[in-house]
Design a protein around this nucleic acid. Structure first.
Length: 740
DNA sequence: GCTCGAACTTAGAAGGGGTGGG
DNA sequence: CCCACCCCTTCTAAGTTCGAGC
């Protein structure tokens, strides 16, 4: 799937989205060309850079150099500070006052106007204007109310599973839940409103947990003997172990992965480990392996599956449903809760994202002996498959997982946990948005603070402050450091390197422009040109002085330092809270801005999607265009071209004859053409931007619920079933006047 | 302070199934 | 009714955070 190089489209994209301009078709074509081009160039650069700089000796060396530099820098810094001094002084007085008020709550934000102006300051990428929020006073009571509810309402601890009945849900008695072997189909009579209950305060995540354990991966079924494998043109029968791994590769034959060197190399190495010594001695070159019959066989199988009768399909569906009912739920504290991923991950070839050094490695089959089960001591313990044992049976109620195992590629632990609709996930989610709302209350103070810190005489403070500014303004991720060679080379804010930014004192008529170009999570490219304040710009120049491209931009900073600092500024504050906060506040503002009262329902929904899209752009949520995308765009393009021809013909005819009905026809054609072009633009936008991620993870659902209530929009238009389940708490509790 | 690993959230791809327009 | 397309679900990789141990 490759690194996704969708460069440079953002500006235009954004424009199209927000200003709702219709696109034109040439644009699209050019864009594609552009992308291709970029891709290659960039990659080349990367490779060159790697060979040039990529070793640790060098790193150490430049590290020393930095230390050396440090002294000098400090001198610079202080002179720098002097220079700025007068200018700042007057400001500073103003700024200090509010800070004081802070201590017992929050400063009155309105009075202080420290930022020069919004356009320079908190404007987000692509001119997305995020206004400063200046209306916080009122929620405080509300917030408190929530807290109070939770704390006061129920005084008794939920100690025994037995005596707590969900407040609102009489039907949902313990007896039914615990003994009754789940009537599969029956609707849970009334939904349990966990959000009206008290939360545990002792750090325990549950008091009772019972489940059936995981569903193991299906055992390997050897290929029918008619399906042959050839090595060097000669048929060869593989033993079951080697054959299984071969099928993993055969199933991916159509995938780009199998053309990549790293993938092939890793695969072959691990495959050979599964071979008998005889096989190993024969099979020495992957290029001589012919998996085609195997590949064809699997293709045929999947065709056959598609071609099955309705009846047979139904049977499969029923069987899946049965599995779901049996293994897909657990009982946690009196309630039957859905499990998210109750199947053990089947063996296969590792598919890392981007330029992952381990792609193609064999992800081994997980056996019961690898699996740790977590459940209540006094629950009915899940049974391992006959003749096997679990690795461990554990009763740890300080964690939320039911099952875990260690994966062999990175050596990390995998978990089976509950569905987002569960109490345990929902509470956490709710809490996340409350923390973000707390940030809203003090964000002005924090912003003033880091602006002050840009002037600090300590390098680490300055770096921290500039990094925080990026995290706040651009919604960058924190950016932990990663071990080289273990995964794709991606970065976040704290791990930015000098090579990831360019500074332009002046660009496109704007001053102090920073150009970002790096691969973020999942190797998604982040590309953005942002005008910053002069002081930030100067600081960046300082940070980059005497560094190599591959040196850390913030060499005095990491996520742990940053988060420690944030924690001191506000309880529960970490870097990622800024993303949540900025995403949610942006949605709220965009909704306010874009929704017009007299518009009809589809238009309102369009506005909602546009607001959502603004957030997705802010957070850089992209996806690769589907395989069929180019083709379907071409089809559309053909239609557009045809329409254009028709139109020009019609126009010519009008000139000749000028009769009324011909003029009408021209109008009609023009309209149709416009529609098609808008459709093309829309599709284009939606292919590159993933709205789902922000909707699911960043946008306080109560904002959307309130918006729906306010405008009489059915919630189903905004949230599908899964989403409604996840956000049940918000749907139930938010009123039309909810403010984030 | 720093490193490591456990636990949990966030992420896009893939695939299947539903649906709506021709 | 068929099929393209789009939406939803599933899957699991890739992040962040935090705390233990040194």
């Amino acid at each position: 799937m490759a690194v996704i190089w969708r460069g440079n489209t953002q500006d235009r994209l954004y424009q199209d989205t927000i200003s709702s301009g219709g696109g034109n078709s040439h644009k699209h074509k050019d864009k594609y060309k552009d992308k291709e081009h970029k891709h290659k160039d960039h990659k080349k650069d990367r490779e060159r850079d790697k060979s040039k700089y990529g070793n640790s000796d060098h790193k150490e060396f430049s590290e020393k150099k930095h230390r050396e530099k440090e002294r000098i820098k400090h001198e610079d810094v202080s002179t720098d500070r002097h220079k700025d001094k007068h200018k700042e002084k007057d400001h500073r007085k103003d700024e200090i006052k509010p800070k004081k008020e802070k201590e017992n709550g929050f400063a009155s934000p309105h009075r202080i106007k420290t930022e020069p102006d919004n356009d320079h300051f908190y404007h987000s990428p692509k001119s997305l204007k995020r206004q400063r929020d200046n209306d916080e006073t009122e929620f405080k009571p509300k917030k408190i109310k929530i807290e109070n509810d939770r704390v006061d309402k129920k005084t008794k601890k939920r100690k025994q599973d037995e005596d707590i009945k969900p407040k609102k849900t009489q039907k949902n008695k313990k007896g039914e839940v615990a003994d009754g072997k789940k009537k599969a189909k029956k609707e849970p009579e009334e939904k349990w409103k966990w959000w009206e209950e008290e939360r545990a305060t002792d750090g325990s995540k549950w008091r009772f947990l019972e489940h059936k354990g995981p569903v193991m991966a299906a055992p390997y079924e050897p290929l029918p003997s008619k399906v042959r494998f050839f090595y060097d043109g000669k048929q060869m029968k593989l033993g079951p172990e080697a054959e299984e791994v071969a099928t993993f590769f055969a199933k991916m034959l159509d995938h780009e992965y199998t053309t990549k060197d790293a993938f092939r190399k890793n695969f072959f190495k691990d495959w050979r480990k599964e071979m008998t010594s005889e096989e190993k001695s024969k099979i020495t070159d992957l290029k001589k392996c012919n998996f085609n019959e195997m590949g064809e066989y699997f293709k045929a199988q999947s065709e056959a599956r598609k071609a099955m009768t309705k009846d047979d399909k139904l049977k499969i569906k029923v069987e899946n449903e049965r599995l779901l009912q049996e293994y897909g739920f657990c009982i946690m504290d009196n309630h039957k809760e859905r499990i998210a991923n109750f199947r053990i991950e089947p063996p296969g070839l590792f598919r890392g994202r981007g330029d992952h050094p381990k792609m193609g490695m064999l992800k081994r089959r997980i056996r019961p002996e690898d699996i740790i089960i977590n459940c209540s001591k006094d629950s009915k313990h899940p049974k391992p498959p006959p003749g096997t044992k679990w690795k461990e049976l554990r009763h740890d109620n300080k964690v939320t997982w039911l099952v875990s195992w260690t994966e062999n590629i990175q050596g990390s632990i995998k978990y089976i946990m509950l569905n987002p609709s569960s109490r345990i996930k929902g509470e956490k989610d709710w809490q996340k948005y409350e923390t973000a709302r707390n940030l809203k209350k003090c964000v002005d103070r924090l912003r003033n603070q880091y602006r002050e810190d840009w002037k600090s005489k300590e390098m680490r403070i300055r770096q921290r402050a500039v990094a925080l500014y990026f995290i706040d303004k651009l919604a960058l991720r924190a950016g932990n450091e990663k071990e080289e060679g273990e995964s794709a080379d991606t970065v976040g804010c704290c791990s930015l390197r000098v090579e990831h930014i360019n500074l332009y004192p002046e660009k496109d008529g704007q001053e102090f422009v920073v150009e970002f170009d790096f691969l973020g999570k999942d190797s998604i490219r982040y590309y953005n040109k942002v005008p910053v304040e002069k002081r930030v710009f100067k600081n960046l120049q300082l940070f980059m002085e005497n560094k190599q491209p591959e040196d850390d931009l913030f060499d005095r900073l990491n996520t742990s330092i940053l988060n420690k600092h944030l924690q001191e500024l506000m309880d529960g504050l970490t870097a990622k809270v800024f993303r949540t906060y900025n995403a949610s506040i942006t949605l709220q503002q965009q909704l306010k801005e874009l929704t017009s009262p007299d518009e009809n329902l589809p238009a309102k929904i369009l506005s909602y999607n546009r607001a959502n899209r603004a957030v997705a752009i802010l957070c850089n949520h992209q996806r690769a265009p589907p395989k069929t995308f180019e083709k379907s765009m071409q089809n559309l393009q053909t239609k557009i071209d045809a329409k254009k021809d028709q139109l020009s013909d019609a126009k010519r005819d009008v000139k000749i004859c000028g009769c009324d009905w011909l003029k009408k026809a021209v109008e009609r054609l023009e309209e149709q053409l416009m529609k098609l072009e808008v459709q093309a633009t829309d599709r284009e936008e939606n292919k590159q931007i993933a709205l789902g991620t922000s909707k699911l993870n960043y946008l306080d659902p109560r904002i959307s619920v309130a918006w729906c209530k306010k405008w009489g929009i059915p919630i189903e238009k905004i949230y599908n079933k899964t989403q409604r389940e996840k956000f049940a708490w918000a749907i139930d509790m938010a009123e039309d006047d909810y403010e984030f």
